[in-house]
Design a protein around this nucleic acid. Structure first.
Lengths: 340, 340
DNA sequence: TGATCCTGCTGATTCGATTCAGCATGTGGT
DNA sequence: ACCACATGCTGAATCGAATCAGCAGGATCA
């Protein structure tokens, strides 16, 4: 642990033969306003380089009360690659802006959440990103309200805080576009829950987009096979549908897990994707790429969301509350029957 | 942004009618050695509570040069839930020890990695966890060597740094135990790559465990279907095997993606899991739970790894270099034929 | 020759907590 | 009545950088 003693501003100043004050001005790029002679400037810069001078962030923070860190608080119940990707984006954006990311996971526990918020505020993070796994409506903890905050993947109607979300409505339209770019000679159904309980906002918006896009194409939505967004429920509902003699040429699954369940049910009934049924989905998860055939999925741009959130947070142009919708790109597979 | 002015130690001291020195001693639990009168102690504690005093971490760090943060540097190429789970564990453990986690993702880029290391050292993190996605042999960046470091999911033979890894060998044995707890009236094969290139250490160790456990049970390994650890390659190799007339009663897949490919190939050949073939796997990912039937998988305890790494890092008992192997628990599904 | 201005720098203070060294009291012993 | 000692507290320095106010010294002008 024999760490080399770090050199301080005074070390640099001494080596350059100037006062710490002067060195400070120069190293902070304020030479101009302070009328520092170019020669002096060079000497100090050289000294700093020689000594590998790196300012002590604690000292700086103490004076300026900014820490060049941003806190990310999420409920992200481990597992999904959500957190991972979102943090990747956030972390990259933060690096660009010379910040580091401090994380805290509330695991959905309001008390833990409050603790984490407090701890981050104690440490004077320059801002906090409040993220949720599922797109949802939230009520941010009190102490956060008068801080720099950006909501990620959620909104808080009460407070009008700035937020970053996927553009679910356009995503819905995109899914339909993918489907109709192929051959779909029959009914189109949606698979997935749309009951508004649970607070997820994604479902209704995607469904709106799907409905509108279909209508504009002169087709309509034959029905919705309603189920929770998971593999087994999706299997059951699609299995039931087929067992009852239901037939569809196109299925829009509301996420990739639903699509997996759907694939399994279709296989069980001897139906082949995409020859018998075309399938598109949402999430753009790894899973989509693992299926046979590979699934066309409208992706949730987690990394982008993370990056945008950080940028908004650190953007000094203090624009008012605003909600940014990030486009959902397509991860294209071969689950849609090609047009002849 | 109208943040309430935070109260300082002097505020507390003034309110309690003592000096800042005294307040400091009391709040740091050093009343005893400093012979503070109980009454004074109570007054200070009360004042601190009244004012909702929270020490300023920057000031404290400046004096003590400890920051109550730990850095996590990983290559974690987004996507896998690896990072997410590992951070969950790390973050929980850190909370217990009153620390926060600062993250940095190197994306496998040594230059970026060096930058991140530097930035974290600048900020005086109390220690760094150096993590890799795939269990592998690494060479940690220079500046890290004389710091408090714990390797996570990797080892550095050159430096003998402490490390935390899954117990892959025992995991291999566990997989076999799961398989043989059922009915496996025929050959047992392994599916997955075992060439030692790439630096992944998991494969060979799992394979050793598998071989030893089989031998001890009086069975042997009929063969290894070699392929990269991913869905499509696994599908191809198993498909080829079956096409060539190969038959197996038990398959040990080296990870869950391989197992998915294997499931797909088996289905293609009309083979039913577990009736015709029993399958076990490694990873314990969500995917295992999504398959039909649910896959029995020996889990990589990411959260535990993260937690253990943090604990080792912050454990002051400065024990020498040591390598900890964390047990791999079973996520049990129904992919093994039940014994009659 | 002195008043004025500009140039180029520096001293001293501040941020908030920690910590060493030491200073008043009060108590006990002789 | 005087010294020794324990008790209970405090002053001042310190960590490293930022920043305000201001000071020499030379040039410029009347």
């Amino acid at each position: 642990m024999a760490t080399v003693r770090k050199s301080t501003l005074s070390d640099v100043a001494r080596r350059a033969g100037v006062s710490a004050t002067t060195a400070s001005y120069i190293l902070n790029g304020r030479s101009a306003q302070m009328r520092i002679a170019p020669a002096t400037q060079d000497r100090v810069l050289k000294a700093a380089a020689d000594l590998r001078y790196r300012p002590n962030p604690s000292a700086r923070s103490l004076r300026t009360s900014t820490t060049r860190t941003v806190g990310v608080i999420s409920d992200l119940v481990a597992g999904g690659s959500f957190a991972s990707q979102m943090l990747t984006g956030a972390s990259a954006a933060a690096r660009m802006l010379a910040h580091l990311i401090v994380i805290g996971e509330s695991q959905g526990d309001p008390q833990l959440e409050a603790l984490l918020v407090e701890e981050m505020l104690d440490r004077h993070v320059d801002g906090i990103i409040y993220a949720t796994l599922a797109t949802s409506e939230v009520s941010v903890p009190r102490p956060l309200r008068q801080q720099r905050v950006v909501l990620l993947n959620c909104v808080d109607r009460a407070t009008q805080l700035p937020a970053v979300l996927p553009d679910e409505y356009e995503g819905g339209r995109t899914a339909v576009a993918e489907l109709l770019a192929g051959e779909v000679p029959g009914e189109i159904h949606v698979v997935g829950e749309m009951s508004s309980e649970g607070g997820s906002l994604a479902g209704p918006l995607r469904l709106d987009g799907i409905r509108d896009a279909l209508r504009e194409a002169g087709r309509d939505l034959a029905g919705v096979l309603s189920c929770p967004w998971d593999v087994a429920p999706a299997f059951d509902v699609v299995d039931g549908f087929l067992r009852d003699g239901g037939r569809a040429a196109g299925l829009v699954c509301l996420n990739d897990r639903v699509a997996l369940g759907t694939f399994q049910a279709l296989a069980e009934h001897g139906l082949v994707v995409p020859d018998d049924v075309s399938v598109v989905s949402f999430d753009g998860s790894e899973l989509a790429g693992w299926l046979r055939p590979r699934l066309t999925s409208v992706a949730i741009p987690y990394a982008d969301l993370g990056a945008r959130a950080v940028e908004m947070l650190l953007d000094t142009k203090e624009q008012g509350p605003s909600v940014v919708r990030v486009p959902m790109p397509v991860a294209r597979g071969t689950s849609v029957l090609r047009a002849r």
